[in-house]
Design a protein around this nucleic acid. Sequence first.
DNA 1: CAGTATCCCCAGAGATACTG
DNA 2: CAGTATCTCTGGGGATACTG
Lengths: 115, 115
Amino acid sequence: MRIFHCEMEITLDVIGGKWKGLILYYVIQKPRRTGELKRLVHNISQKMLVQTLRELEADGLIHRKMYNQVPPKVEYSTTELGQSLEPIFKLLCNWGANYADESYAPDEIEILHLK
Amino acid sequence: MRIFHCEMEITLDVIGGKWKGLILYYVIQKPRRTGELKRLVHNISQKMLVQTLRELEADGLIHRKMYNQVPPKVEYSTTELGQSLEPIFKLLCNWGANYADESYAPDEIEILHLK
DNA sequence: CAGTATCCCCAGAGATACTG
DNA sequence: CAGTATCTCTGGGGATACTG
């Protein structure tokens, strides 16, 4: 039996933590391969990437599709539940952009958009 | 010079981490005293509570008002920037409630709302 | 009551090597 | 390329005691 003290705790239990938010952010945009995520999520180790992906999968937020080929190919995509976070994540990004505008001088911050 | 790779990283830099989300959640609802937060944010230590409050204050999300009286009284409230998270946090809570509905059997979860 | 100062620990995370 | 297995380690965070 899991005990929570408000709905926010539930949400944070599922998408909180050091890496979940960022990984979800990229998988929500479009299906992503493992190596792609490793490149996008700066500084994450192979270990933490796989571990976090397993947790997101176990919680029903993403789906893991494996192609039986050599070399191996795996693609992660959102489930319906995971994709339902998309509008919220968009708001969170907008908020962050606005925060940067208000709280950083132009020469104190740089945003390097990867593709 | 701070480097980010997407707007999401900025947001997570400000409101990510183990305790910030939950503390903000309660302060957004209404001004809160220290002891009140300690009671609401389950399992947080005095040290982490104060430390996190200082970070939120330094990042301009909350304001600390001190009453010069004995015994001391301190009240934390949101700044305009902090309060601008309110609609997003509401969505996050709704999402968590919906997640609980979909992913937990009724006897696997309990939500103890404190006041 | 609110906050500081210490001490200290261990789980979470990094590094490396290896496999199919 | 994707993933596992180990080993290591460090710093985030817990516990405690103390102050104004």
